[in-house]
């Protein structure tokens, strides 16, 4: 299982890459492996305001469906349009091409409570 040291994680298997007051959000390699082939992704609207832990979308695989939860509060500034036609990039590159949304953060307080790579691995029992 791949994991990136520079990302922050949630116990619901989302990751966030924080760059100043912007964050890119996706699901972890563990999550995509558990889901299997991703076939549809339901995305939020650009401009939508999310509170931390809000459900902001859905990932459907052949076998199952999973909700996506916002790792941080913020305004949606972009959604990954490529996922509409090619959702399997989540399986192929969950931390890169397979990103899901970008957020503009009101502050950085919440981000300090997200899990580090080590803490996320521990939460998985790995």
């Amino acid at each position: 299982m791949k994991i990136s040291e520079e990302l922050k994680y949630t116990s619901e298997h989302e990751w966030a890459k924080i760059d100043g007051k912007a964050a890119t959000v996706g699901i972890t390699d563990y999550a995509q492996d558990q889901l299997g082939d991703v076939v549809f992704v339901e995305l939020p609207e650009v401009g939508q305001m999310l509170k931390q832990k809000d459900e902001f979308g859905v990932v459907e695989s052949v076998k199952s469906v999973s909700s996506l939860y916002a790792p941080l509060s913020g305004k949606v500034t972009a959604v990954n349009e490529k996922l509409k036609d090619n959702p399997s990039i989540i399986n192929k590159d969950p931390y890169g091409e397979g990103w899901i949304i970008k957020l503009e953060l009101p502050g950085l307080e919440e981000a300090t409570h997200l899990l580090s790579a080590d803490q996320y691995l521990k939460a998985l029992g790995l």
Binding site: G36, D37, V39, V62, K63, N91
Partner: peptide, 8 residues
Amino acid sequence: PVSYGSII
């Protein structure tokens, strides 16, 4: 076994 990689 549910799958060995990709169901598709």
